[in-house]
Simulated assay, not measured.
Amino acid sequence: MRKFLISSLSALCVLAAPQAHAHFQLIYTPEINLKKAGDVPLKLIFWHPMENGHVMDMGQPEEFYSVFKGKKTDLSPSLAPSPFKGVSNEANAFDATVKLKRNGDYKLVLVPSPYLEKSEDIYIQQITKVMINKGGVPTDWAAPVGLKTEIIPLSKPYGAIAGSTFSGIVLKDGQPAANIEIEIEHITAEPDLSTNQPSSQKSASHPGGAIVVMSDKNAQFSFGLPKAGYWGFAALGSGPDTQFQGKELSQDAVLWIKAHELEQ
């Protein structure tokens, strides 16, 4: 679902889309709130995580790096091809690591190579972010990285609470992007890094297809988080690039956050 017509736009309304759950690029690690320094394992997967469905082949990423207090560190030397075996198929994916040293926010950024979706005859490029915190010391989680397109969280992305509302702003070339369709998915069965497959065969579906909100005139959107776990937000076609190798390109901004149960 990449071309969606609607006459009334609302960032607070969840809309039913006519198609099944969408492609989502993941930068996954089991825990994003860490206390100790050291190497953190990562898994890069292009997947249908809510329905625990089809896995797509990833090409060699164009860029993969971390940003800590404005300093960029290239993580591409840590990339290692490592196929991910989904419930229905196996596809190319990558293992990687990021080294945490000082306390604060580490922004992980992946610019994947465009993927040809043959059924739609278009390319998809999902520029993806996730944030890891060390030591419980927030630094600059709300600051943009400077990507072609990105989602800026207005709520702490590693401190969300199940039942609360998450809000963000969609940027295109650093400027607010209004009226952008944003698909939302939950990881139903988190990846098992030791076996390179989903941790279970659980799947989820949503009546009416994908969960969708729209960015408003100020480029903001909100979504109530109904349960704990990882939630992904994909702003479809929010990037400035619209063509690749003579075909249409959907250049999307993806942000992953993790919601936790409120401890009593």
Rank of each mutant, 00 (worst) to 15 (best):
A80H: 05
G237F: 03
P18S: 15
P191M: 04
P49N: 04
V212R: 06
A234Y: 02
G232H: 09
K71E: 11
E90G: 05
K71A: 09
D74F: 04
H260S: 14
T73L: 10
L44M: 11
V87D: 11
H206F: 11
A20C: 12
V55N: 03
I127K: 09
L171M: 04
S164D: 15
G163W: 13
N103T: 12
A219G: 07
A37H: 08
F244V: 04
A235T: 13
D173C: 05
S76M: 14
G208N: 05
E31R: 07
A178I: 02
K107Q: 13
E150V: 04
G53T: 01
K3M: 04
P191W: 08
V254C: 08
I257P: 07
K118A: 15
Y115W: 07
T139K: 10
E90I: 10
T73K: 11
S88P: 05
V111D: 05
Y65E: 03
G86N: 04
I6K: 08
A189C: 06
P81T: 00
G86T: 06
I151P: 02
E90P: 04
L15D: 14
P138M: 03
A177R: 13
I122M: 09
E261I: 13
P83W: 02
P176K: 07
L255Q: 10
W47C: 02
N33A: 07
A162V: 11
G38C: 12
G229M: 13
P18Y: 11
P81S: 01
G246D: 03
I132V: 15
A11S: 15
L262S: 12
I132E: 00
L262A: 13
A253N: 09
Q19A: 11
A91R: 12
F4Q: 06
G159Y: 11
L12C: 07
Q125E: 14
A22I: 00
L5P: 06
A235M: 09
F24W: 10
T128H: 07
N218Y: 06
I151V: 07
V67S: 03
N179S: 11
D39F: 12
G59W: 01
A219V: 05
K71M: 02
P49L: 08
N33K: 07
G232K: 02
D192Y: 04
L249R: 00
G70L: 02
G159L: 13
S76Y: 05
Y106K: 01
L26I: 10
T149I: 03
R2N: 12
P207A: 05
A178H: 01
G70S: 07
G104H: 11
H206L: 03
L147D: 06
A234D: 14
A11H: 11
Q243T: 09
N179F: 12
N179I: 00
L225E: 10
